[in-house]
Design a protein around this nucleic acid. Sequence first.
DNA 1: GACCCTTACGGCGTACGTAATTATC
DNA 2: GATAATTACGTACGCCGTAAGGGTC
Lengths: 288, 288
Amino acid sequence: MELRQLEYFQMVSRLNNITRAAERLHVTQPSITIAIQKLEDELGVTLFDRSQKQITLTAEGQVFLQRVENILRSIQDAMLEMNDYRDLQKGSIKIGIPPMIGSFLFPEIFANFKTLYPHLELCIIEEGSIAIRKLLEKGELDLGIVIISHPSPLLETLPITKGEILLCLPPNHPLVHCSSVPFFQLRGESFILLKEDTYHRQIIMEECSKNKFTPNIILSSSQIETIRGLVAKGVGISFLLDVIARKSADVISLPLSEPLFIEIGLAWKKDKYLSKASQVFIEFVKNL
Amino acid sequence: MELRQLEYFQMVSRLNNITRAAERLHVTQPSITIAIQKLEDELGVTLFDRSQKQITLTAEGQVFLQRVENILRSIQDAMLEMNDYRDLQKGSIKIGIPPMIGSFLFPEIFANFKTLYPHLELCIIEEGSIAIRKLLEKGELDLGIVIISHPSPLLETLPITKGEILLCLPPNHPLVHCSSVPFFQLRGESFILLKEDTYHRQIIMEECSKNKFTPNIILSSSQIETIRGLVAKGVGISFLLDVIARKSADVISLPLSEPLFIEIGLAWKKDKYLSKASQVFIEFVKNL
DNA sequence: GACCCTTACGGCGTACGTAATTATC
DNA sequence: GATAATTACGTACGCCGTAAGGGTC
């Protein structure tokens, strides 16, 4: 059985005339005669009554026509849907966003992208940056926003922006009047950090070990807003990205004497197939 | 787009492996590679991720697979249905007919059915009603005419008609002038019965045991005509269905004092696939 | 190096078109 | 005799199989 035969059959059924059907389909009418004969042979039924000059569907032919109309419509639908994907009328991107970065960078990117590509769905996975990297490497995410200072051989990256990690203090903290703070001075402080699965935390921990002390971590959260609240209340100190810290009126943020810069970027698995939608997103980010 | 491409696509999707798919489909694997490439070209989307050693469906591919599974199933269905019709044109029904019932009921049904469905062949298996029931339950018959007073959990039944079992006597028998005969009066008679594999015989035997005697069976036959001849010659007495007995001029038939009724019907195996032809026959009998 | 997919190429089947034939009104 | 379907036949396109080439683990 061939689709062509079904299409011929459908047209002949509609027109009750092989010659007209042939004209419509831009083939000669013997082609249609043969095609339908073969179809009938294969099915083992007579689809058309040829006893009159004008051929008409038999009872079996009518039943088969119903089926064929359905089948051809389904195929049409499937092709149209694929066209939609091709033309980006459809498609979804699974993208991982870590809390620190997602909270300031993503809303902006997201809004702009959606106005350009309203049909594309962005499926957001909120995880720590280390978890996101693992998911990317496993191929379970299409894209992720990560700190690209720790490059992975499995991932392709595209820088988006840079940020500085600032020390965040309660307003009544003795250090608030310094213009910058050396890291070792934080030795005795209570630290409030992001959860273990983030590079942000890893960076702070590395600084501590460089300065030969183990931080007193009194709390870990993955919610920026929680951390900020705790710092404001004087529970402890923390570290936020500059863009976030600046928006926080109730905490004081200061640069470190040896400033900590991080580079933020988009990442995806090398050599993995990227859906058209993901490719478009990468292009979009490139042109920011 | 070609059906072959869709079939290849489906198999590759299922196995995630072109080589295996090629083996299953009895083609070489380049054929599949090419077919799928062309499909992707036509659709304008990438269906498979070929970056790993093992190819896997892309997001678009997964969507397309759903569609394709549907389409191929529809086509399969359409072909199966046409096969059913083909069987209607060339097909045959294996139907079991017991002697007593077949001899009066079947000729009439058969003749009418044949005029309506001249293409259908009715293949008649003549066996006793018990044997027919067993063949039905084994699935070796499509349909059977049986006495449905003894229902079977494996069989579906459709009542056709009822009949009364009449006592048949030679014209010179002392009981012929009675209007009805009590069964116990037959104690000393010579019985001529149908063979062991019939319910008809079983019913008579049950009556005997109810009346506490063992019949003197001098002969068993499966031929109604033989039985009738023997009764006419005065060899013994027998029992025939009313419709048959009435047509027999050379024997006298009388009702029993406690009349024996049987219900006759069409039966077929539950849950067994019924060919279109058999379905048509059942419908035909329903509308008698 | 083993496995798997893709590319290259030649043969063959077959679907198509042209032309002739048959059938119906 | 006109219209329409079928049959007959030669061509040409395209699918398939064989063989070689590139990737990945």
